[in-house]
Write a protein that binds this DNA or RNA. Structure first.
Lengths: 346, 346
DNA sequence: ATTGGCACTCCCCGCTGCTGAGTGCCAGAC
DNA sequence: GTCTGGCACTCAGCAGCGGGGAGTGCCAAT
């Protein structure tokens, strides 16, 4: 029993099963794939694959179905990332071409996530550029009323956070000179720093304030710290939920836990965070039981980091049933990650 | 056949059908509700209700099911909005209590939409405060590099939009004096104005610019106009999608079109926009065929306006199967709309 | 207007038997 | 040793069948 053929059999089983969604038998296999051997031979191979835990039978005298381990072997055994087909490439261009002109981050991510969902026919997720790694570009202080200000934080990834500040009535009003002075000091303390460094630096601003301003300054600093903290707490955008319920989705039953996990964005973000890209392919795949979360036991995630320059600032990916078309998903995720990195680099 | 009893029968049918999800027959009806008459009498009433198109039989010799028109009559015939039960009220307090402390609009809406979804067990939607009606509070101009600026727009509803501006290399750099001057003029032109008025007023800024600054000024003004336009294009937040696939959801089949409609936010926003609150109850209900969109033919929407002061600035609501618990949904939507209005009023 | 009775209609549920795809094993061929 | 054809066996899925039950409409009586 030649070793490479066994891998070919596994690959054929995965492909057929993904395509038909039905357990695949030895006879169907030799008919659909030019394996050059008889069904009986395949049966022996299948018995061996089952022995190894790569495939399983739903019940006696049924065809075989890949296990999570089988999908894993299939994915690891993929020769290379399949390049996108011309129509796929055109679809990306069409969906992202316009968006690339826009400089608004929300807009770019929105378009990108939709494109990825449509391309892969799965649920697509994009993590906002992580601001733990991002740096403060500018802090703006805008007085709206004598006792009311807005603090606006802008980072070098283009993200903007704002906070309202209300100065307590027992404290003196905040005059324009103080606003100007404070704006200067806040920027001096934080500009170019990472979120955690910036928070530390703000302490100095606080202690060096004149006693009569202390109350107002501490309110503003607190708001800014809150904005900095919010940037560390990840956000994401999501598209293609409708793909989950599609006829061809594969999550025949028990969609509810999957949707719940998706809605509980923390779960997805944590999952993305713990994935690390394979250096060769540039993507990372988690399959079924490899995902610790209980509701996602028959889900798989394909993700990839993206970022401007060589540095990865966040991740994007797709989520679908373990029985998904991995080559297409992998190709799509990689292409979109590259595309997005290119757009952000400007 | 007394007229009021017929309405009681309709109400009983709707209630039972919503609870059991099965066609309800005359016998079951008299058993579960103290109607004080025999099944035969109910049968006569049912025949009359069917004649009026309020109920229908899925097939001969089956119980009755309310039609869209029947639900409509049921909703219109509701005596008054049921007040929230203590546990429900506590649930709102718990979910929104913390959020109320936050002054960040995104955060408040996020919490509120989750609360509404959990309360009603439906998909909840909140439209962002409509900025067509909102007014410009402040425009900030932040230089990041000699040829690069960020324009930040802040409105009195707390929404912030930002745009990057890149000044073309053939134009002169933008000096700090110009930034200060331009900031002043932009604010003078737009502050306190509605989005459409502001755009008109910006023309004057453009024409009165010195010739050597014209290029840079027009870039900035264009960015600001884009931000103003974006505010008119509505946004929404959404929660509780998982409720759709719940066992008890009621959309037995064909979830896909519903999810697609939800994901295509425009559809939902348009739907909300064309709903007008009933003055008595403060909410508005659309049922099944009353919704023009094709994919939502067995969906119903309960919505209500909200806003600071007496003015309605946007709407929120829930979407579910026509077979939903209307009293609970209506009570929940109204309570959350009031709560949110109160929070925003500060 | 209401009611009990009655005949009728079908959905639903469980049972049965069949078919076909698929398996494992074995003995023989290469 | 590896592959192959043959063979007996297993079992999910489907169609056909029949009874029970819930529900209806109609009618005559109160």
């Amino acid at each position: 029993m030649t070793e490479p053929r066994r891998l070919a059999v596994l690959r054929a089983i995965v492909e057929d099963y993904v395509a038909t969604r039905e357990p695949v038998g030895s006879k169907a296999l030799v008919e659909r794939h030019a394996l050059g051997v008889s069904p009986a031979t395949i049966r022996n191979d299948m018995a061996a694959l089952e022995e190894e835990g790569l495939i399983a039978q739903p019940h006696t005298s049924a065809g075989r179905v890949p296990t999570d381990k089988g999908y894993r072997a299939f994915v690891d055994g993929l020769p290379a990332v399949r390049p996108l087909s011309p129509p796929e490439r055109r679809a990306i261009e069409r969906l992202l071409g316009d968006g690339a002109r826009s400089l608004d981050l929300d807009d770019v991510l929105e378009r990108t996530v939709r494109a990825l969902a449509q391309l892969t026919q799965q649920v697509a997720v994009i993590q906002y550029p992580s601001l733990a790694r991002a740096r403060v570009r500018h802090v703006e202080l805008v007085p709206l009323a004598p006792r009311r200000l807005v603090v606006v934080l802008i980072t070098d990834t283009g993200r903007v956070e704002q906070r309202s500040v209300e100065v307590a009535p027992e404290l003196p009003e905040v005059g324009p000179e103080l606003v100007t002075e404070l704006r200067g000091r806040l920027n001096a303390a934080t500009a170019g720093r990472r979120s955690d460094e910036a928070v530390a630096a703000l302490d100095a601003v606080l202690t060096s304030a004149r006693p009569e301003d202390a109350g107002a300054v501490s309110s503003v600093v607190a708001a800014l710290c809150s904005a900095l903290a919010a940037t560390r707490e990840e956000r994401m955008v999501l598209a293609g939920t409708a793909n989950l319920v599609r006829e061809a989705s594969g999550f025949a039953t028990s969609l509810a836990p999957v949707l719940e996990a998706i809605e509980e964005q923390v779960v997805v973000l944590r999952l993305l965070a713990e994935m690390a890209d394979d250096p060769a392919s540039g993507v990372s795949v988690r399959i079924g039981s490899e995902i610790v979360h209980s509701g996602l036991s028959d889900a798989a995630v394909v993700s990839s980091g993206y970022g401007s320059g060589g540095e990865v600032v966040a991740r994007l990916g797709v989520l679908g049933p373990t029985r998904m078309d991995y080559p297409t998903s992998i190709a799509g995720v990689r292409a979109v990650a590259r595309y997005l990195s290119k757009v952000l680099a400007r």
